[in-house]
Simulated assay, not measured.
Amino acid sequence: MKLNQGVEWALHTCLNLGWIEEAGDVGAAPTARLADFYDLPPAYLNKQLQALVREGILSSTPGPRGGFRLARRLEDITVLDVVVAIEGRAGAFDCAQILRSGPGGDAGTNYRESCLISQTMTKADLAWRKELASETLADIRERVVSLYPDTPSSTRSWFLNTKH
């Protein structure tokens, strides 16, 4: 399974918004500034951020002084929330029920339920989702602070002192 690169961009951007907002009322962060931090294409990043808005992870403010803010605390945003916002809710495996067409296949059988391959793939997808749901962005933030203690202040400084 390969995730869209927008998932990585969205996760990092949410963490950056968390660092920025810890500085107090700094207003909404414009897409161009958020994209510039990692040298990302602003239009494509904006598409990812709008997906986060639709899922209630971010809020957006239109206009010349507009941009994005976290709509929820990092403690209330799981990695799965972000993945689902960017990738959608569909599972990683979609059983096409090819057993229906094979020798001895039965058009009336739901092979999504009875096929052992489908069951295995569904079980793996659920385990992956459970793991992503168990990890919040606050958990990641804590590990970043532990391993790279200067990251919050240097990120805030970049956003507060760098003009776009």
Rank of each mutant, 00 (worst) to 15 (best):
H12Q: 07
V145P: 03
N110L: 10
D94M: 02
A32N: 13
A43Y: 07
S154P: 06
I20F: 10
G108F: 05
I140H: 04
D139E: 08
L49Q: 05
D139C: 09
R129Y: 00
A51T: 05
S101H: 07
M121H: 12
R141A: 15
E21R: 06
T13K: 03
R69Y: 08
D150I: 12
S60A: 15
G105M: 04
T120S: 14
S118W: 01
Q50G: 11
S154R: 14
L160D: 10
P152Q: 11
N16T: 09
R54E: 12
V144D: 07
V144T: 13
S154L: 14
V7Y: 03
T109H: 03
G91L: 11
A32W: 11
H12L: 10
E8R: 11
S157N: 15
P30Y: 12
E21F: 04
L3P: 03
K47E: 15
L80C: 02
A85F: 00
W128F: 08
L99Y: 09
V53G: 05
G105E: 10
D81R: 01
I117G: 06
I77A: 01
P30Q: 14
V145C: 06
G67D: 14
A96D: 08
E87H: 00
A127P: 02
A23Q: 09
T136R: 00
A32Q: 13
V83A: 01
L58Y: 02
R100C: 03
F37Y: 15
L11R: 01
L70C: 01
Q50M: 14
R156Q: 14
L80Q: 03
A71L: 06
Y38R: 12
G56A: 01
S101D: 10
Q5C: 11
R100S: 08
V144W: 08
N110H: 07
Y111F: 06
F93V: 04
E21C: 05
Q5Y: 14
L52A: 07
R89F: 01
Q97V: 06
G66A: 12
L132A: 01
T78D: 00
C14Y: 01
R89P: 05
R73S: 11
G24A: 05
W158T: 11
I140C: 04
P103C: 03
L49W: 09
T31G: 13
K2D: 12
T151M: 13
L49P: 07
P149H: 11
H12A: 08
F37I: 08
Y148P: 05
A28S: 12
V26Q: 09
Q119L: 13
I140D: 05
V7D: 03
G67T: 15
V26C: 09
F37K: 12
V84I: 05
A133D: 04
A138Q: 14
S118Y: 03
H12P: 02
G88H: 05
L15V: 02
G18P: 08
V83G: 01
F159C: 10
A51Q: 09
G18F: 09
L3Y: 15
L11W: 03
S60F: 10
T13Y: 06
A85K: 01
R33P: 06
D36E: 14
M1N: 06
Q119P: 04
L126M: 11
G27D: 13
G27E: 12
L45M: 12
A92H: 00
S118Q: 04
L52H: 03
H164T: 15
L126H: 09
L132N: 00
L34Q: 09
M1L: 07
W9E: 15
I117Y: 05
S146M: 08
S154Y: 12
R69G: 07
